[in-house]
């Protein structure tokens, strides 16, 4: 007799419960991940160059400060990209969305891939 109503109530309740779950925003995340990887890599190399140049200026290590720091910056850039890609792949495998969240190079969370 009231099956229809009960069903509608159950549906409304389910919808309400679903809203309480964190909703992943999925659109266009792949592009965001791409932009992020590229700029993380370049930023790390620039940091290396800047730091190296600064050390050279301060201590007169030229050109070794620049060379070493540029190398470290490059390694950091690769690490950033690997970390972001690992995180994105993990989230894609986990919930089917190209996850942008937590995709930052999380210091202290990338176990061992810094080496």
């Amino acid at each position: 007799m009231s099956e229809d109503l009960n069903q509608r109530i159950a549906e409304a309740q389910a919808k309400l419960d679903a809203q309480k779950q964190p909703s992943a925003i999925d659109s266009a995340k792949g592009m965001g991940v791409g932009f992020k990887m590229a700029s993380d890599f370049i930023a790390a190399v620039i940091v290396g160059a800047g730091l190296g140049w600064g050390l050279d200026e301060l201590f007169g290590w030229s050109p070794w400060g620049l060379i070493v720091c540029l190398l470290l910056g490059f390694i950091t850039g690769v690490k950033n990209i690997v970390a972001a890609a690992t995180e994105a792949a993990r989230q894609t495998a986990e919930n089917g969305s190209t996850g942008l969240r937590n995709m930052a190079p999380k210091s202290g969370q990338d176990k061992g891939d810094g080496a």
């Binding site: 470290l72 390694i75 690490k79 190079p105 202290g108």
Partner: peptide, 14 residues
């Protein structure tokens, strides 16, 4: 740690 410091410094730049 050095790499992580580089990484942290690269954040605002990035």
């Amino acid at each position: 740690v050095i790499i992580e410091i580089f990484s942290f410094l690269s954040r605002p730049l990035s």
